[in-house]
Amino acid sequence: MRPLGNILVVCLAVIVLYAMQQTKPHYEDLTGPIPAYGKMHETVHTRLVDLRLDQVDFSRELAFTQYGQRKTLTTSGLWAVATTELAATTASTTVAAATWVGPTGLHYEKTDRIGTLSSQMPPMLDPGMPRKVRFVFEILPDQVNGATFTLSSRMAPRLDSEARIAIDDFRKFNDGQPLIADSYDLAKPVPVSGN
């Protein structure tokens, strides 16, 4: 009886270990970002930054002024401009990563086509002094409906919070397609009122 019992124990152990191996969360997931979910127009709290996504605009062209020169960027996709209000929670900090995550899971980092425009540098944030900051993304037109805006203080947060805000409020037509302006001017002051 005894050898049979031992064999049973070993078999059971193999089954349990195999089940654990197959169902375990991946290490990357276990130590990944800690999401802080939210909606537009409400304040989302992360460990280092409080943020509110106020407005999202779409346009065919992006205009701005750099070194005294007017510049216009065109795109075969769509410019998406997310207007946020950011403030540090407990200590002066910066925001290194903002991403537009499309409904099919495509990740769009903040565009680097604008170059060294001061308003597009990683913003310095201080506690108690909220700032309006715009993030510009170059996306595909079908990545608008059901998209998510994510923001974190570090490039790839590990075991640190990351804000994830559902983009659910933007100007659109009755069929759900976004209203796309001809041009968006980054040189103009941040718009205050929303939709």
Partner: peptide
Amino acid sequence: IRLVDATGRSWSPA
């Protein structure tokens, strides 16, 4: 060198 308020929030040079 940072400034700290009564609740522990801190500001870096700007």
